[in-house]
Design a protein around this nucleic acid. Sequence first.
DNA 1: GATTGGATCGCCT
DNA 2: GGCGATCCAATCG
Length: 190
Amino acid sequence: MIERDFFLQPTTEVAKQLLGLELISQTPEGLTSGRIVETEAYLGSDDPAAHSFRGPTSRTQTMFGEPGHAYVYFIYGMYTCINVVCGPVGTGHAVLIRALEPLEGVEVMRHRRGREKLIDLCSGPGKLTIALGISLDDDGRDLLTDKKLQLRSAEELNFKIATSARIGITKATDLPYRFYIKESEFVSRV
DNA sequence: GATTGGATCGCCT
DNA sequence: GGCGATCCAATCG
């Protein structure tokens, strides 16, 4: 079981420790889940690339709320991305979940994605929200108590963590805040 | 009130 | 490797 304090560790540490955990979504179409294999840390007012850099706005309210909640936002006119809020209330830190290794509900994911290959189901932040049926309505859910979206600690896994610059941003492109499971084939990029 | 750009993806060449 | 799709919301005036 994951405790609230888990999300009060330094945000880059949370980003690394989320690797290997299972993200679960329960909807009327069925249960879908995947192992987190890629994350990015966003550090609030210390991080020009973070949505929360310039303080709270209507979009980023949940980023400044209680840690352990889901910050879901809409991007590029057609995609949503899911983050886990980190740090004390008011700091605006979060970890973006960028890729999953599909575990449960693969057929439901195939249907939602319109793709057959496992590797195409959750290998990007916009893909995995489609595969798990996550939408803007899920913004603010508490991942420790919610019925639909949950985090589950997985069995002990042995893997190496790789680090890189974050993907798709135009500011603070030099910071090494992207983390992924080195030997995983389900990441968005190598 | 209008403009602009975005933590992406998939199809095209 | 390049670009168009598509729309919310932050920012500016």
